[in-house]
């Protein structure tokens, strides 16, 4: 089993390496001429030439990639083109902001989604299940910004309970932060929870139709015991992967929400970078999101290996 885990972690590292390669290819090779892609069509040949030298485009691509990669590994993500600031310095506080928001949402969404998902699975077809189905179907159907704007309209503009923009500072107290970030966190929670709940329900239902669950009922065990002792231990692995998958989704969902609430996180930084075609910023943000994604997926697989009884007790 240890070997499986080591292999998986190694595979994760390898994937991370490929992610860096993909980012490099997508941003510097795919557009053909990066200089004109960044500067747009209005650029004069002189500015283009100067810019090419600034980017080091006269050197072969693999040299530039290796240089970028080694610098990134040493914590040097380059300098933003627009304001000439060190990317890593801007990125670090924004990353902690994003993690705060994502963690905030996850702390509410994960326990609620698992409990409600299991509840609606074991009450299949009953009221709570139908209600959960309708509500989550609604939540996954609407765009993030729709929920966000409704929440703003009701709770910020009309009721005035929460601020409509989530401005946070470095020296803000924790409770203030929790208060200010409440609306984006709730929006994110609703979105992620809906997906997670539906998937949890489906995986528990898949377990509930196994013959050993029927056997447990035929052994005369009460429903509670069948669920707690026979269904849930087997549902753990699928539920873990559901949670990880949705946390990865949450990382991305953050982008739009941050823009709506003008929240100073990585997502907004990336969107800014993208609209200004600020190459180092785009690369750095993509690296952060891609890394988090790979990390969560690897973690999910490792946990799934750990809870699998067949792997825990090999022949």
């Amino acid at each position: 089993m240890l070997r499986l885990i080591i292999t998986r972690v190694f595979l994760g590292c390898l994937t991370l390496l490929v992610v860096t390669l993909l980012i490099f290819v997508a941003t510097e090779i795919l557009p053909g001429d990066v200089a004109s892609a960044v500067l747009g069509q209005g650029a004069t040949p002189d500015t283009l030439a100067a810019f090419r030298i600034e980017l080091g485009l006269d050197r072969p691509a693999y040299v530039r990639y290796l240089e970028w990669l080694t610098n990134a590994l040493q914590g040097d993500l380059g300098v933003a083109m627009t304001n000439k600031r060190d990317v890593i310095e801007t990125l670090t506080p924004r990353l902690s902001n994003t993690l705060f928001l994502a963690g905030y949402a996850a702390a509410i969404a994960v326990p609620m989604a698992i409990v409600l998902g299991v509840l609606s699975a074991i009450n299949e077809g009953k009221f709570i299940d139908r209600a959960a189905n309708v509500l989550t179907l609604g939540a996954i159907s609407v765009p993030e910004f729709f929920i966000a704007y409704i929440l703003i309209l009701v709770f910020a503009t009309n009721l005035g309970w929460f601020p409509s923009l989530s401005t946070v500072y470095a020296d803000m107290g924790l409770w203030d932060k929790i208060y200010v970030v409440a609306l984006p966190a709730v929006t994110l929670t609703l979105l992620v929870m809906a997906h997670m709940l539906r998937m949890t329900r489906a995986s528990v239902l898949a377990i509930m139709s196994q013959p050993y669950i029927e056997m447990a009922f035929l052994k005369g065990l009460p429903r509670r015991r069948v669920i707690l002792r026979h269904a849930l231990p087997n549902a753990a692995a699928p539920i873990i992967s559901v949670v990880a998958l949705n946390l990865a989704y949450l990382i991305v969902g953050v982008v739009v929400i941050e823009v709506v609430f003008v929240y100073p996180g990585v997502g907004q930084y990336m969107v800014d970078g993208v609209t200004k075609r600020d190459l180092p910023v785009i690369q750095a943000c993509a690296l952060v999101f891609g890394g988090a994604f790979v990390l969560l997926n690897t973690l999910a697989d490792v946990l799934a290996i750990l809870v699998n009884p067949r792997l825990r007790h090999p022949r």
């Binding site: 013959p211 050993y212 056997m215 231990p233 067949r310």
Partner: peptide, 12 residues
């Protein structure tokens, strides 16, 4: 049951 393999819970 017909299939003991399916009717025993793999987790215990």
């Amino acid at each position: 049951a017909q299939s003991a393999a399916a009717s025993f819970n793999p987790a215990h």
